[in-house]
């Protein structure tokens, strides 16, 4: 069974992301939720997931800092990180991909957008 951590300070966003992930094929998956980057990092260190989905704009530790921590950790570096945020455009996407993000999606999300972004992972 795959394991996915969803980090977003909004419960509404976490629920929407989870629903969309289930629709695109992650239905036999264990989901864990975090309200900020710090909580997500603690969950990841305890038990590394198959995928991290993170917002950018979060209190305590933002998504960009979380991405940097993940990519700097030998234990977590290979975990794909999908960024889903309202603060995206092509320049931000390029910057985040350079920092190691697997894919970047702007809000509002849809199953179609997630499917396109996660196609390489779904084929595995």
């Amino acid at each position: 069974m795959k394991r996915i951590i969803i980090a977003d300070d909004s419960g509404t966003a976490r629920m929407m992301i989870r629903r969309c992930l289930e629709i695109v094929g992650f239905n036999e998956t264990e989901f864990e939720e975090a309200k900020n980057g710090r909580e997500a990092l603690a969950l990841m260190k305890k038990n590394p997931p198959d995928l991290l989905v993170s917002d950018l704009n979060m209190p305590s530790m933002d998504g960009e800092t979380l991405l940097q921590w993940v990519k700097a950790s030998p234990k977590l570096v290979n975990i794909p990180v999908l960024i889903i945020s309202s603060v995206t455009n092509s320049a931000k996407t390029a910057e985040l991909k350079k920092k190691g993000a697997f894919a970047v999606i702007g809000k509002p999300i849809s199953p179609a957008l997630l499917n396109e972004a996660l196609a390489p992972l779904l084929e595995e």
């Binding site: 603060v87 702007g106 809000k107």
Partner: peptide, 11 residues
Amino acid sequence: LAETLNTLAGR
């Protein structure tokens, strides 16, 4: 309400 605002402001 907060998530709707966040999304529409970003868009």
